[in-house]
Nucleic acid binder design. Structure first.
Length: 564
DNA sequence: GGTTCCGTAAACACGC
DNA sequence: AGCGTGTTTACGGAAC
């Protein structure tokens, strides 16, 4: 029990640590670092949200300036054709993709949303107002961007026909890219703000609200042609990257923008971040939308059926599926509710998975000593190093080589070992357990083996995965005099294992049988009675049970041997 | 399918 | 006679 609980504590600790780290990640990304437990942090939260608000306004201003500059440049440049006009769409499409990339909630965010705490109505109101302001900004930016895109498109068309100097065009492109970066930064800030809102319970408390922040973003879903364009563009940019222009793709994986250092934008230009024409934004929504490449792996489409939870509408091809998806599963209250339900399902599954992972980790940790220690046959197995078993433990060696001649170093895997240790209830019902691993794998048990699970076996009625012979040997070797009477052996069993507090007649008889059958157990008589010792060399020798050839009981001989 | 290991039950003996 | 201890045998399940 101690082992198990200890492991659980450790696992829980790591889990908590992981969770907190994830939370810290979000906290670092977002502007809100709230201490929600006291339930009275609206001022702090609002202040942090305001900070994000200011940052977004700054970004918006920068974007506007860039846009103005670009417009001026366009006016100056007039109709000039570029040498490499094929590059122009490249600078539009990626940002278009990024601009319209829907917000996708990661599983971590799901958990946080689901585990959120309730805010006060005042908090909600403030946050909602902020959110609405942000959405207005977002729409404003989108309008700017659309206009800019239209102008650029027009310009490009004109340039393609008239021919232009590439220098100015590159400047335009650079300006546009910078502008797009600002847009992305804006979007990321908004996303962080959304996450903050979600974490504060806004989305759950106000079921209608998620549609508010998500709506404009989801409306800008990536058209297929944009994907195709982006694909072509990135492939064209790959060649250009060697010239030092690394503005070809936007690495959105690091969308965390520090509130304290907004200049350290996360818009890291990473020319290698994209593969196969895909932005390195690992959002399920994006992947689902890039159906040109993944039309057969859409998570919501399979076997001609829409896999939206509860839908199962038949879609003959992927295009019809997309139509169906956009029409029947648009972003509305119903879809949002279904998504929330699915989030809960995922959360439950993740929790279950986390528990099972913890369990597996505990099993692995528990078995780590024996499974990872070198067990080369010629090497003494010094995994015990027990204080009370200096001799026997340090000299532990294969004890039944004929049984496992080819696997002297076979590790004890959880597969073979786990059930007998973990399944407390099943252990009691499956009946006698044969092949205790201590014998099977030629590893005598030790005080360390038992000590690791001492509390567990003391309290849980779990049959220890050791043979009677191993346990008897252990009991004897643990004693100060390396000798025990039969009754003391009984007491050791009952003291160390809850399992042996029942059915005494059975296991006591087994002990007596084993003491008699095993050559390694030597009965010694003195003036006070008789006691049992263990010949550990004999124990480690291999077959220590003589069945086919019953040994002749000869206490005098044994005594002489012991004395000698 | 045979062998081996192991647990279990039982019979038996011996001494107190 | 009853009990504890010790020995031996038989049987069956599981693993090899």
């Amino acid at each position: 029990m101690m082992q198990e609980s200890g492991t659980e504590t450790k696992s829980n600790g790591s889990a908590i640590q992981n969770g907190s780290s994830g939370g810290n990640h979000l906290l670092e990304c977002g502007s809100l670092r709230e201490g929600r437990s006291n339930g009275e942090a609206p001022a702090v939260d609002v202040g942090a949200a305001d900070l994000a608000h200011v940052q977004q306004q700054q970004a918006l201003q920068v974007a506007r300036q860039l846009l103005l500059q670009q417009q001026q440049q366009q006016q100056v440049s007039g109709l000039k054709s570029p040498k490499r006009n094929d590059k122009q769409p490249a600078l539009q499409v990626p940002v278009s993709v990024a601009m319209m990339t829907p917000q996708v909630i990661t599983p971590q965010q799901m958990q946080q949303i689901l585990q959120q705490q309730v805010l006060s109505p005042q908090q909600l109101q403030v946050l909602l107002q902020q959110q609405q302001a942000l959405m207005l900004q977002q729409q404003q930016l989108q309008e700017f961007y659309k206009k800019q895109q239209e102008q650029l498109q027009l310009q490009l068309l004109q340039q393609q026909h008239a021919g232009k100097q590439p220098k100015e065009q590159q400047q335009v492109a650079t300006q546009q890219l910078a502008f797009q970066q600002q847009l992305l930064q804006m979007q990321q800030l908004q996303q962080q703000h959304l996450l903050s809102l979600q974490r504060q319970g806004l989305l759950t408390i106000q079921p209608g609200q998620p549609a508010l922040p998500l709506q404009p973003l989801a409306q800008g879903m990536i058209p297929a042609e944009l994907q195709q364009l982006w694909k072509e563009v990135t492939s064209a940019h790959t060649a250009e990257e060697t010239t030092g222009n690394n503005h070809s793709s936007l690495d959105l994986t690091t969308t965390c923008v520090s509130s304290s250092a907004p200049s350290k934008t996360s818009l890291i230009m990473n020319p290698h971040a994209s593969t196969n024409g895909q932005l390195s934004v690992h959002t399920p929504k994006r992947e689902s939308l890039s159906h040109e490449e993944h039309s057969h792996s859409h998570p919501l489409y399979g076997h001609g059926v829409c896999k939206w939870p509860g839908c199962e509408a038949v879609c003959e091809d992927f295009q019809s599926f997309l139509k169906h998806l956009n029409s029947e599963h648009a972003l509305d209250d119903r879809s949002t509710a279904q998504c929330r339900v699915q989030m809960q399902v995922v959360q439950q599954l993740e929790l279950q998975l986390a528990k099972d992972k913890e369990r597996l980790q505990a099993m692995m940790t528990h078995l780590h000593v024996k499974s990872t220690e070198p067990k080369a046959a010629p090497q003494p197995l010094n995994l015990v190093s027990s204080v009370t078993l200096s001799k026997s433990a340090s000299e532990a060696s294969p004890q039944s080589l004929p049984h496992t001649p080819t696997t002297p170093t076979a590790p004890i895997t959880p597969v073979t070992q786990g059930p007998s240790v973990i399944t407390t209830t099943s252990m009691h019902t499956v009946g006698p357990i044969r092949r205790r691993y201590s014998d099977k794998y030629n590893v005598p048990i030790s005080s360390a083996d038992i000590a690791q699970n001492q509390e567990f076996y003391k309290n849980a009625e779990v049959r220890p995965p050791f043979t009677y012979a191993s346990l008897i040997r252990q009991a004897i070797l643990e004693s100060p005099e390396k000798q025990l009477t039969l009754n003391e052996i009984y007491n050791w069993f009952t003291r160390m294992f809850a399992y042996f507090r029942r059915n005494a007649a059975t296991w006591k008889g087994a002990i007596r049988t084993n003491l008699s059958l095993h050559k390694c157990f030597i009965r010694v008589e003195d003036e006070f009675g008789s006691f049992w010792t263990v010949d550990d060399e004999e124990f480690k020798r291999g077959r220590h049970i003589q069945r086919g050839r019953p040994r002749k009981y000869c206490p005098d001989e044994n005594f002489d041997e012991l004395v000698a």
